[in-house]
Structures are given as C-alpha cells and as structure tokens.
C-alpha cells in the first residue's frame, strides 16, 4: 500500500506538470524572460500548488504524530543558510533558464519520448553523480 500510494503521487505529480505547461520549455523561458512578451501564467502553478500543499501541511500533517505508512515524518529541519544552498540554487537557476527544464518536467518529457529531454536528463544524472562524488571527496578529513 505504501509503495502504491507513492506511485499514485508520482503519477498525479506528472499529470499536474503536463497540464500546467511546465513541460513546455518555450513557456518556461517566456515566464523567466520578463523582458520579451512576459508570460506570467506559470505563477499560478506555483501559487496553487503551494496553496494546496500549505493547507494540508498546516491543517493535517502538523496535527499528526506520524504519517500513515511510516513510523515518523522525514521532513527537513535545517534552517541555516549556507554557501552550498545559495551556490547550488544559483547553478540550478542558470541551467533552468538555459534549457527551460527543471528535474520533474525533464523526467516526464523524457519518458514521453522527447529526444532533447532525454539528452538533458542524461546530463542531469551525470551532474548529480559528479556532485555526489565531489561531496564525498570534500567530506574527507
């Protein structure tokens, strides 16, 4: 049941990305580029997604001692702002602005057969592996 619900959540997430327009790189670029015929419609994706999620989090999740299929919640607790956070977000933004794809829409587009998205996802996986390796090397004393 636990895995089934995770699978359902993944599927709904993917459909949401497809419906919202996030899987159209030209639309994402038109949203990010405020200087050339700005298309603000993707603001609604963020607003409604956050609204629904916030409602459930503050009204339901915070009142539960544990999630339905796990003994405890696994939610991030860190509140400190460090260089890794800012540098990582900055690099991610540059990649997002270049390709018009972020990880979720890239995966959905790749599985739909978009060659460009498949190339992007392959490079993204290499980037993730590189970062993992780098993190392990720098963590050594």
């Amino acid at each position: 049941m636990r895995e089934l619900m995770a699978g359902v959540a993944g599927f709904i997430f993917g459909i949401g990305l497809l419906v919202s327009g996030m899987t159209q790189p030209s639309k994402v670029i038109a949203f990010l580029d405020v200087t050339r015929g700005w298309d603000p419609s993707l603001l609604f994706v963020m607003a409604s997604a956050m609204g629904v999620n916030a409602l459930v989090y503050w009204k339901l999740v915070r009142r539960r001692a544990a999630p339905m299929y796990e003994p405890t919640f696994h939610l991030p607790t860190r509140r400190d702002i460090d260089l890794r956070l800012v540098l990582g977000a900055a690099l991610f933004g540059i990649g997002w602005g270049l390709g018009g794809l972020c990880p979720g829409p890239a995966l959905v587009s790749a599985s739909s057969g978009s060659l460009g998205a498949i190339i992007f996802v392959a490079a993204m996986l290499v980037g993730m592996l590189l970062q993992h390796r780098l993190a392990r090397t720098t963590a050594r004393p």
Partner: peptide
C-alpha cells in the same frame, strides 16, 4: 493557460500533500 496552470498546480500540490501524509516525505 492561467487556468490550466492553476489546475496543474492543484494536482502538483495535491500529490505533494499525499506524499507527505502517507510517507512523511
């Protein structure tokens, strides 16, 4: 397109809420 964006957003937010409620993730 803004309506589609909002509907898609509700699905995305609903999915994230479902994952948080069932898996705590």
């Amino acid at each position: 397109s803004w309506l589609l964006a909002a509907v898609g957003g509700v699905l995305i937010g609903g999915s994230a809420a479902l994952l948080m409620l069932t898996q705590g993730r």
